[in-house]
Design a protein around this nucleic acid. Structure first.
Length: 656
DNA sequence: TGAGGAAGATGC
DNA sequence: GCATCTTCCTCA
């Protein structure tokens, strides 16, 4: 199989971003969110951004002199560029950003800096994450990530929308100069991110071998990187679109859900102009897969959209993100083998699509989006430094399956997939994980990636001929380094132990009345960390198998990751946590695969008592702390208390 | 390529 | 000191 990341490599040097020059889109229809007071705030500032400026302001900022000769912002990022590890890149860098228009398309070449991966980019998702409004994917951010052309008139602020149709799509809109570039410019904003990110990205390729990479200065790259945002006084590494607005305006308000009205308004703004899903892609979009690109060149994408959009191709430190951008903005179809579906104009999607952190229903009217086959509860995500670990699979083999029910039209739709959180808070893009496009012979489902508010979104066609059903065999999961994400400004989530995700599917159905029905469904939680002997055994189910010779009952535990040293350590009364007994019975069979444990529940003191007592069993692998025991509950059928001292009758053994 | 395992680094 | 993270190695 070939990963999207690899694909990205092909583009390393030529990444392009398309920014629709088109006109404003129709008012957003979605949710009718148009009113946000806050909009005026930064929006009004739009300044016309010279083409060059775009680069400086946004993710594509280059560290070197701009094409127009204007000095680049003095920000850390500049230095970073210099820091590039690939001399050759530097050479190119100096190639001044070149902008040219071709068919309404302006190509801007930016210097490249090597970036193994764009930390920032990190993940698109990364940014988003779980945090609150800061999340890139969040509505707030979206608002800021709006794309517009260099020309003032294209400024989102002035004309938020881009004609939906025409443009090629979703992708074209975003990028570029996003509002964030905005006036405020937040030079610092963007600057920071790109710069230091880019550098960090280089780590992987860093000459320094060894398990841990160190920056030239000798310290761990991510920690002591000279250009690390941390060190940089002003700018934060986390750039993110939010910076401009968000940072200043919104950060204070960390609860993204509290100010729904504002969010909605912003969101509306954001989406309105975007036809493309990539809408809110922050300039600094991260490249997750970009890791490889060392330089980017602006080029006109062959398949570029015909809508007269501005394409930015860059080769710069942001190279890291490049791949992404390229995929996202450039045609979005940069990836590998192109499926016919992607070569045809896609159905128009309302420009005002909901931000990824919006909670959407799974069904509406006749439509219902369902996950017919759930993904396995565990999928080891891969790091950018690793090869792909393949697509997420289904428990019974095969892959997850998603189907849109109730849709009778003949028009194909686009199913979106991104990696969301799995905690008890509202579903939102996960900061530390990104969906990873898988391609290759073994993949039957076409797809392509786009960036939406810094979150990588996989788009998969839902075809009537397939009964609007899609087999998700093209989606893997990429893990971003915690350090990269946590350093982002505004990021409040921590990556440590935050390893559960959900696959989130969305579909947008345009209605005859001009409205768009958006549905969303999330999969069961997926544990993305590596499984090891130290990992918790997972009990999927329990059932009574038979009566134990001891007179008690025999319980069958089915699950995963039972190890040779798996054991039921103790049992307590669920009602009050009263400790009933301890045990050290181990599994006889060596296997980390799914196995079953048979637990002989000892005889009970008072049988046939009216109210059976529910008990909790705790299982562990090896020596784990109590807090890490896996608990499962058991309700004896005819007892209310287990004899504490009858340990001799307890045994635990595995079944194939 | 896709996994699985584990060494070494980090964080708590 | 231990759990977890990240990177690297090996194998089919």
């Amino acid at each position: 199989m070939k990963s999207a990341e690899e694909d990205a490599y092909c583009y390393n040097q030529n990444t392009s971003i398309s920014i629709p020059l088109g006109n404003p889109c129709p008012p957003s229809q979605y949710h009718n969110l148009q009113t946000s007071p806050s909009l005026s705030i930064s929006i009004s500032q739009p300044s016309s951004f010279p083409q060059d400026d775009m680069s400086s302001v946004g993710y594509f900022q280059t560290s070197g002199p701009r094409s127009n000769g204007a000095p680049t912002l003095e920000s850390p990022r500049i230095e970073i560029t210099a820091y590039g590890q690939f001399p050759e890149d530097e050479v190119e860098d100096n190639s001044v950003p070149v902008t040219k228009r071709v068919n309404s398309i302006v190509t801007l070449t930016l210097p490249s800096v090597d970036g193994y991966r764009d930390p920032t980019c990190l993940s698109p998702a990364s940014s988003v994450s779980s945090r609150s409004c800061h999340s890139d994917a969040s509505s707030y951010e979206s608002g800021f990530s709006y794309n517009y052309d260099n020309s003032p008139q294209n400024s989102p602020w002035q004309s938020p929308c881009v004609s939906p149709k025409g443009s090629s799509s979703l992708q074209s809109c975003t990028l570029g100069a996003s509002p964030r570039h905005s006036p405020s410019g937040s030079p610092r904003t963007s600057i920071t991110d790109d710069n230091w990110i880019g550098n960090r990205g280089s780590r992987p390729n860093s000459p320094c071998g060894g398990k841990r990479k160190y920056s030239f200065n000798g310290g761990p790259s991510h920690k002591y990187h000279p250009y690390s945002p941390n060190q940089s006084p002003g700018p934060s590494p986390q750039t993110s679109p939010r910076l401009s607005v968000t940072e200043d305006s919104w950060l204070p308000n960390t609860n993204q859900y509290t100010n729904s009205a504002i969010v909605a308004a912003i969101n509306a703004l954001t989406t309105d102009g975007l036809t493309d899903l990539a809408e809110g892609i922050p300039l600094k979009s991260r490249k997750t897969s970009l890791e490889h690109s060392a330089s980017m060149n602006l080029k006109v994408e062959p398949g570029g959209d015909e809508t007269g959009s501005l394409e930015l191709c860059q080769d710069d430190f942001s190279s890291v993100r490049l791949p992404f951008k390229k995929e996202t903005y450039c045609s979005g179809f940069l990836d590998v083998p192109q499926h016919p579906y992607w070569s045809k104009p896609k159905p128009y999607i309302s420009p005002s699509l909901p931000a990824l952190d919006w909670q959407l229903p799974s069904s509406s009217g006749p439509y219902s989006l369902q996950i017919d086959v759930q993904p396995k509860s565990h999928h080891r995500a891969h790091y950018e430094t690793e090869g792909s670990r393949g697509a997420v699979k289904a428990l019974a083999g095969g892959h997850p399956v998603v189907q849109l029910h109730g849709y009778m039209e003949s028009e194909p739709l686009t199913l979106q997939l991104f990696i969301g959180t799995a905690d008890d808070r509202l579903l939102r893009p996960h900061a530390f994980y990104q969906v990873h496009r898988i391609t290759g012979k073994t993949v039957s489902t076409p797809s392509h990636e786009v960036l939406q508010s810094n979150t990588k979104v996989l788009e998969i066609p839902l075809l009537p001929e397939s009964n609007m059903r899609a087999i998700i065999d093209c989606a893997g999961i990429l893990k971003l380094r915690n350090s990269d994400i946590e350093l982002r400004k505004g990021e409040t989530d921590i990556g440590r132990k935050n390893t559960r995700v959900r696959m989130v599917f969305r579909v947008h159905i345009n209605q005859p009345n001009g409205r768009t029905v958006s549905l969303q469904v999330a999969s069961n939680p997926i544990e993305c960390s590596q499984r090891s002997a130290q990992e918790l055994p997972l009990v999927d189910k329990q059932s009574m198998e038979s009566c134990a010779a001891s007179g008690g009952e025999q319980m069958l535990l089915s699950g995963h990751n039972f190890q040779p040293d798996s054991k039921v350590v103790f049992v307590e009364r669920a009602q009050d946590g009263h400790h009933i007994w301890e045990m050290e019975a181990k599994v006889n069979r060596e296997s980390s695969k799914s196995v079953a444990l048979l637990v002989d529940v000892p005889p009970y003191r008072n049988q046939r008592i009216s109210n059976p007592v529910q008990v909790n069993f705790y299982v562990c692998n090896g020596k784990r702390k109590r807090s890490q025991y896996q608990r499962f509950t058991y309700l004896p059928t005819n007892v209310n208390e287990i004899i504490r001292n009858d340990l001799s009758s307890i045994s635990v053994h595995s079944h194939a």
